[in-house]
């Protein structure tokens, strides 16, 4: 997969985006009250983005469709946990879709048949969602990623977009597992330092 490709990130904050944010937040409140039409409207506005995320991580349509279904069933069950004051709705939904896709990758990897047991990152309890509060500006993230050395940057992007694990990344790069771990850990610490400046 072409995970190493760097593209300029889009700018946030257009008028449309602001409107969508408010609209989605309202719809999610209705979903939380059990309004199926509202979920249908959320689907109409977000399914292309979330399906794109599922396909990017899973690499095949059949699994992406299964995971997309799981995502919206989860939204139906957990919309009450969404707090518009702390996270943008589209970010909440996109992170949820990525986490569900990562879970599916782990099931593939570990042969875990039980969806409940498999979910770790895809935890959708309120506590996990509250803390999207410090959602960072895209340009800033892009700049901080640019500050990293090429290896850790490429590997972090690969992990993010392919859901690749440490052993898979080490395998691909042909380096020992320990080397891969120290590249990425150093990269993550630098990234954090940069984002918090």
């Amino acid at each position: 997969m072409n995970s190493g490709i760097t593209r300029p990130m889009r700018q946030a904050g257009s008028v449309d985006e602001g409107e969508l944010r408010g609209e989605l937040a309202d719809l999610l409140r209705r979903v939380a009250r059990g309004d199926r039409d509202a979920l249908s409207a959320v689907y109409a506005r977000t399914s292309r983005k979330l399906y794109g995320i599922c396909i990017r991580l899973l690499g095949n349509e059949a699994e992406a469709q299964d995971v997309l279904q799981e995502v919206y069933v989860t939204i139906w069950r957990k919309a009450g946990a969404f707090d518009a004051a702390r996270a943008s709705p589209i970010t909440w939904l996109a992170v949820l879709a990525r986490n569900k896709a990562i879970d599916q990758l782990r099931r593939r990897r570990d042969g875990e048949a039980d969806l409940d047991e498999a979910s770790g990152v895809a935890d959708d309890r309120p506590s996990a969602i509250d803390l999207l509060e410090r959602e960072q500006d895209r340009t800033r993230l892009a700049n901080c990623l640019e500050e990293l050395d090429e290896q850790p940057r490429t590997m972090i992007r690969s992990a993010f977009f392919d859901g690749a694990s440490y052993p898979e990344l080490a395998d691909r790069a042909g380096v020992p597992l320990g080397t891969m771990k120290s590249w990425i850990r150093r990269g993550l610490l630098r990234l954090k330092g940069c984002l918090e400046r």
Partner: peptide, 25 residues
Amino acid sequence: FRSAVARWSGRLAPMLDEIDEAAPP
């Protein structure tokens, strides 16, 4: 730890905007 995981999810989330949209069937 849960908070830390969620903060990292939020930090990295802007990268999700790079992914091309796709129409589900």
